[in-house]
Each structure stands twice: as C-alpha cells, then as structure tokens.
Design a protein around this nucleic acid. Structure first.
Lengths: 124, 124
DNA sequence: GTGTGTTACTATCTAATGGAGAGTAAGGAG
DNA sequence: CTCCTTACTCTCCATTAGATAGTAACACAC
C-alpha cells in the first residue's frame, strides 16, 4: 500500500484536500460551526452561493461523513444539516484559514498595488 | 469602513480566502515550502497541473505578494520562484489542512462506503 | 549553416464546471 | 380553486480549466 500523498493526482487524499479547500465547503462548514441549520438558512448566510452548488456541496459533505442530514416529513419540507464529529474537527483548521485571510488582507492589497504599479507604465 | 467578512461575496477577504483555499495554490505553496524552485520543477512536483494553471496561479501568487519571481536572462530561460515572508506564513495553516486530509482519509472512506451502501439498494 | 534541444511561457480549441432562472411536489391557509 | 412555502431538480448559457501546439532565443553537434 502506498503512502498517502496529495501531490499525486491519483491519490484519494488529493481529492479530499481539494474538497476541504473548496470555497463553498469552507464557508458552509464554518457556518454550521454555529449549530444545526436548515437548507435555506445556510444559503442566506453563504452569500452568493447558488442552489445548485449548495445542494451539491451539502450532498458530498454528507457522503464524506462531515455533515448529518435530517429530513422531517412535513409540508413544506424541512431539512436540517449539522456537523458530525468528523466535520467538527475541520472547524479549527478552516477558521485558521479564514482568520489568515482577514488579518493579512491589508498586506495582500499593498502587494497588489505595488505589482499593478509596476505593470501599468508599459505604455508610458 | 466595513468589517472584513468572507461570508459576504463582495468582501475582498472572500476572494482571498478562495485563492488561498484553491487546490493549486495549496499544492504550490506547500511545494515551495521546501525552498526556491524553477517553473518546470514545480510543475513536476504538483502532479496533474497544466502549464496554463501553473502560469496563472504563480502569477497571482506573485501579485498577491506571496511569491517572489526571479528571472535570469539566460538561454534557455531560467525563472525561480520562492515564498516571501507573507507566503511563508501560509505554510503552517495549509500543511495543517494537508495533514488533516491524510490522517482522516480513512474515516472519510468509511463514511462514503456506508453512504453508497445506503444508496445502492434502491432497486433491490 | 542547418538541425536539435532546452525552458518558460502563449494561443487556440474543446471539455467540464458553475450560475441564473424556471419548474416541481405536496399540502395548508385564504 | 389559488397561492404560499421549502428543498430541491432541470435546462440553458457563461466562465473556467485542460490538452495540444506553437514560440523565442541561443548553444551545441554535425
């Protein structure tokens, strides 16, 4: 048996890394860190996600054992999603990423300004 | 001035979070954590990346101040990429993600098996 | 001096992915 | 009846990514 190696495109850990780094996954998991939530409520918090992507991402997170889906047989339908133990283990690593983004945004913005400055005067 | 909030699709931190969570970004930054490297060498380590994506991702990482690009005026060309201070700060959070993927792969695989088991017997 | 090899790209075409918007089931309220 | 609600699905189009084929510019072999 091979060592798991995300740098190898055929390794399952590569796909898993892609999934947990995915933009919608990050946002959905961090949202559900606050507690169980309904489909529509998640969609409202994760600004800009389409229903299609919300459905798809939730479904694969459930399949991967990070979320638990509970459907109530009522009309109109009600479906709750919540993090499993496995999913909860992802919260800290992902919130570190989120924090990185918010705390370093300024530095990145500066770097961009410098870069774009150097690019622009081509036709000067 | 607004609070930075990645859940808002218009917030710059949202784009930044997307970028640092991007599959190729994660793999490239982790690769360069080993030290400066040439274009082709990075491409070989990050299995499956196309030249186009390698070029594009490297360029935006340079623009965002996470990588430094050094081109030598020789033939054939030689271009080195290396992490900046900012880029190096990303290494730990990203390697935590990588480690998460490798250590939890087993649990995810089990969850998938259970899930797919439950799906299949529809036509039983 | 013609041909071959090298490296870091760019260009073009096609395949896959994602978003927008409408449609659906099923019943309760008016 | 008709409308409303929610958690989806379907279809169509725009954007994105991948595959493949160039390209520049010189060094070296012949």
């Amino acid at each position: 048996m091979q060592l798991p190696n995300p740098f190898d495109k055929a390794c399952p850990t590569r796909q898993l890394l892609d999934r947990i780094g995915d933009q919608w996954t990050v946002l959905i998991v961090l949202t559900l860190a606050e507690g169980p939530m309904r489909f529509t409520e998640i969609g409202k918090r994760v600004d800009g996600i389409s229903q299609k992507m919300l459905t798809q991402t939730l479904r694969s997170l459930v399949r991967d054992g990070m979320l638990k889906r509970t459907a109530y047989a009522v009309i109109p339908p009600r479906v709750d999603y919540e993090l499993t133990g496995l999913g909860r283990e992802l919260v800290v690593p992902l919130s570190v990423l989120e924090k990185w983004a918010t705390t370093h945004m300024g530095q990145v913005q500066e770097a961009r300004d410098v870069f774009d400055q150097g690019q622009a005067p081509v036709n000067a």
